[in-house]
């Protein structure tokens, strides 16, 4: 394990910062595509974005195996997660409760845990680090949590993701859920959200 000084700090107030982060994620998950910004973590371990690290601090612990994509799995990131979250870090993304991946190298969505019909909650929540999120433009979203439709532009994604997302939607009630991250900003797409490309 790296010396203590090499570990990036967690939340200033673990109790209230976790609560604020959870509420941002809850709001994002309940209103797919809505952007929320969390100014709670200034110095995340590279190459993780502040929102990625904050979501993990708020939700990941010894009960939730975490998978980190190879291009993001730095020593700093791994140490941070082990020290602050105490979570097991797994090599098989089908065994992960949470996963972190970059938009450009997002592995095929079908390889994560999708849960089963009796227990659909046992699927992976995938945190995707994008290079830009913007509302009012780009993809058209609809489904539970959205009054009519919502627009969201996601930058930096590899091609083919939204076709796989459609396949993910067909699996309902199984399927993964996405948390899209851009710096300190996040948006979420639960498995129920229908995405139409412009």
């Amino acid at each position: 394990m790296a010396p203590m000084t090499d570990i990036k700090p967690g939340f200033r107030d673990p109790v209230l910062d976790s609560q604020a982060t959870f509420r941002a994620v809850l709001d994002a998950m309940a209103r797919p595509g809505r952007l929320r910004t969390l100014a709670l973590l200034e110095d995340p371990p590279a190459p993780l974005a502040p929102a990625t690290a904050a979501v993990c601090l708020a939700l990941v612990d010894q009960d939730t195996p975490l998978w980190i994509a190879p291009d993001l799995r730095s020593q700093a990131a791994e140490t941070f997660m082990k020290f602050h979250c105490g979570c097991p870090i797994v090599d098989d993304r089908a065994k992960a409760a949470f996963a972190i991946a970059s938009a450009a190298k997002l592995p095929s969505l079908g390889g994560f845990a999708i849960g089963d019909d009796a227990y659909p909650e046992t699927s992976t929540t995938v945190i995707v680090q994008t290079v830009g999120l913007a509302a009012g433009d780009g993809l058209t979203l609809s489904g539970p949590g959205i009054e009519d439709t919502h627009r969201l532009a996601v930058s930096g994604l590899r091609s083919g993701v939204w076709r796989e997302w459609m396949e993910n939607g067909v699996l309902f009630p199984c399927g993964i859920d996405l948390i899209l991250v851009d710096g300190a900003t996040l948006a979420a797409l639960p498995r129920t959200t229908t995405v139409t490309e412009a």
Binding site: L59, T64, E121, P173, D177, T192
Partner: peptide, 9 residues
């Protein structure tokens, strides 16, 4: 975590 999965399903 249970609440978030509840919202998703």
């Amino acid at each position: 975590r249970a609440i978030l999965k509840g919202v998703a399903v």
